[in-house]
Design a protein around this nucleic acid. Structure first.
Lengths: 419, 419
DNA sequence: GTCATTTAATTCAACCACTGAACAAATAGC
DNA sequence: GCTATTTGTTCAGTGGTTGAATTAAATGAC
């Protein structure tokens, strides 16, 4: 039996019942200690970990021994600091252990990247090409080639790929099928089946890396979460051709009942506004989508490659092009109205502008903040921060790869048992 | 040292670090088994619990012994069912152990109730009176009297109050202060301090019942969650004088960064609509709040007691009063636009209409569903259910009391250690 | 240069809670 | 009455944490 390409969709196949058996104790403490090591700014010592977790130093030592044996943690060579007493040996995530493969299909490019346990991007390829005229099978075939290169590069660097995640700009169901990707023109595309034939992905070094297919905006939000500066809860808005959002609540991505949360682009801004192709009226996308901004700026027919649109807008805005400034102000107001709804509903204190919006933050932020201040009941006591994404256009691919290694950090038991 | 009235606000005082010490194992399994007993439809046997949790029968027996000793669980006297073999002894939540005290201040009434571990309402008092002209201190004083009666009644029934929760129709901060309750006319009311002087609440039987102050809509949603039929995630909309919502995600109330989530009443429906007293424009409350509906139905000057308004509307709607039907259709459309935003954002599959909306569900549901179907991208594959709340106007008080006992069920270790 | 001081990490007996198997209890069916 | 069947308990065994004692490795005072 060689199931070469296990694939799953957004929702994990059902959380284990939660029975705390005997061995779970160790498993939980492995996760606890590894999580602390991952979250620490500088390599902590065993003693420091014991102090902050409340575990005994003896226990921490035993746990760390397991983690080191499993290539998840290494001791920092240079002694981190000295005071008076035996110097501590710092612990940090291993850079040569498991790594994650991140893939992305978007309207105008394909991307693949490899991220190691420490969060470093060890490989990154982007293939720029409009995917709309390409069939799903061909697009996935091309992506498989990129994945093959990424795998080879990872092997060469001594990394072990522990899994893969694929981001697509659309709705993904439990089985990994793309139900609908409007801007890509996909409908009911069975991604796992189409990928099953491609050797570069199925030939695995050891063990099978399962693939998770997820929404691109969700993965971008995860990328932003792991990129550090982000707090526990925030809304990440990806302004691509469509507008998607990832919702991070208390440090975890919120996916919704069926994994289709974050469809912020179709939140009604003006219920009686112009019809949207989604069937509704006055959706946000009609006011703040890429096409809407370009059209309002008088650049509608310019026929820009999609990935250039954001750059071009930034240039023109920086040059104080009046129509562009007006278009961005209008888009910002529409985004602000929507964000005000979200903040009223969820009481978030941070909004991250990602994707094509990131470089435009300087112009979008003022109208967004203005609407928040007008419309959010609690704005007076609870200021909302609006900031650009720190990862650029690569957020989704990096987030995808990061989600793989984060899963190992969150539950190292599985990885260690594999040995 | 007699801190007589420990009080806290919405957010728990910081989750424990999550260290899994030795004893935690037992604590986790106590919670696991107790949770299963609470969730079961009919009293399960120890063997059945072992089967579904994955624990050994030996372990389950030991855990159950602890739970029975702590008066959290009792054996069901009548053998639940027989097949062939030794008859099972059913286990159920104890009705004579800890209980929760629930309090509520609303615009036109005060309420107190006691709920036992099994979820039964063992005491319930409502004091109908408009609280707007009453000072916060006097209102809380009157509430303390109700609480005293409730405590006496609980004692008489052999129940031990394990804590109390108070719902208010406004924003509550971490310290239990009411920052703003617009419809009550409260601003910066230090509830804990005002309650500290009232003996009926401070005289405790054994130990101090800490008080949690929370938003009324949040507690109503919790009440609905525990009342059973509700699934893992839903939006509960409380249509009182104001409109609030409680968001339940994966079986847990989502409170937001500062505990101020669910301010759905001030989500903009028409961004350029009439000004709202919150400072925004076109807020939902202007279209679907109680006053808005009454005014649209031509009943504006009728000077109904607030608690009668909903009943009156229901009667007139049942009599097919044209203006009322029109008003409800308009309100339903506004609610539907807002709910569509929420569903697009969170991918929820259930919306519960509570408070004054509950009896009006028959008239509100069609327009709400119509807007959802028009505006929610995923509506085609993911039908949304709109249903009335099963608890009536008592939802918040019952939910408040229920939140106390639910906390014990979720973490029984604390209660057992208290013995 | 030696030694007390200090902090880090490991070792080891004790203990707690779960495991698995054997056993006792209680009923239905024959 | 006997067997089959299922429930619940007892008990030795084991994994993992605990806490104290011990070893390790540095600084600083004299």
């Amino acid at each position: 039996m060689t199931v070469v390409w296990q694939c799953q969709g957004v929702k994990p196949p059902a959380a284990p019942a939660g029975a705390v058996r005997q061995g779970s104790l160790r498993e939980l403490n492995l996760a606890l200690v590894l999580g602390r090591i991952a979250a620490a700014r500088r390599p902590p010592s065993r003693a420091a970990l014991a102090a902050e977790t409340g575990l005994t130093r003896a226990t921490v030592s035993a746990v760390v021994e397991d983690l080191v044996a499993g290539r998840l943690v290494t001791e920092a060579d240079p002694t981190p600091r000295a005071g008076a007493g035996r110097p501590a040996r710092g612990l940090m995530l291993a850079g040569d252990g498991p790594a994650g493969l991140g893939l992305e299909i978007n309207v105008d490019y394909l991307a693949a990247c490899v991220v190691d346990l420490a969060g470093q991007v060890r490989h990154h390829t982007v293939h720029r090409a409009d995917q709309r005229p390409v069939s799903p099978a061909d697009a996935l075939g091309r992506l498989a080639e990129l994945a093959g290169q990424a795998r080879a590069d990872a092997d060469a660097q001594g990394l072990t790929l522990a899994g893969a995640a694929l981001g697509v700009p659309g709705l993904v169901d439990d089985a990994g099928r793309v139900r609908l990707a409007p801007n890509l023109g996909w409908r009911d595309v069975p991604v796992p089946e189409l990928l099953a034939d491609h050797p570069p992905l199925t030939e695995t070094v050891d063990g099978v890396p399962p693939l998770v297919v997820d929404n691109e905006a969700n993965l971008a939000a995860l990328g932003e979460l792991h990129a550090g500066a982000a707090p526990g809860s925030f809304l990440h808005i990806s302004g691509e051709v469509g507008i998607g959002a990832g919702i991070v609540l208390d440090g975890a991505l919120f996916r919704g009942t069926r994994g289709w949360s974050g469809e912020i682009g179709h939140i009604p801004v003006r219920p009686d506004g112009p019809p949207c192709r989604c069937g509704g009226r006055g959706c946000l996308e009609l006011y703040a989508g890429q096409e809407a901004i370009l059209s309002a700026a008088g650049l509608a027919g310019a026929d820009l490659p999609a990935d250039r649109a954001s750059t071009r807008l930034t240039q023109l805005a920086a040059a104080e092009h009046p129509a562009v400034l007006r278009a961005l102000a209008e888009a910002g107001t529409a985004i602000g109205v929507t964000v005000a709804s979200v903040v009223n509903l969820l009481d978030l204190d941070t909004v991250v502008l990602g994707g094509g919006y990131a470089p435009l933050t300087g112009w979008l932020r003022p109208p967004v903040l203005a609407e928040i201040e007008r419309r959010v009941l609690t704005a007076a006591w609870s200021p909302v921060t609006v900031r650009p994404a720190t990862l650029g256009a690569t957020a989704a691919a990096v987030g995808a790869a990061g989600s793989v290694v984060r899963r190992i950090i969150a539950r190292p038991g599985g990885w260690l048992a594999r040995l």
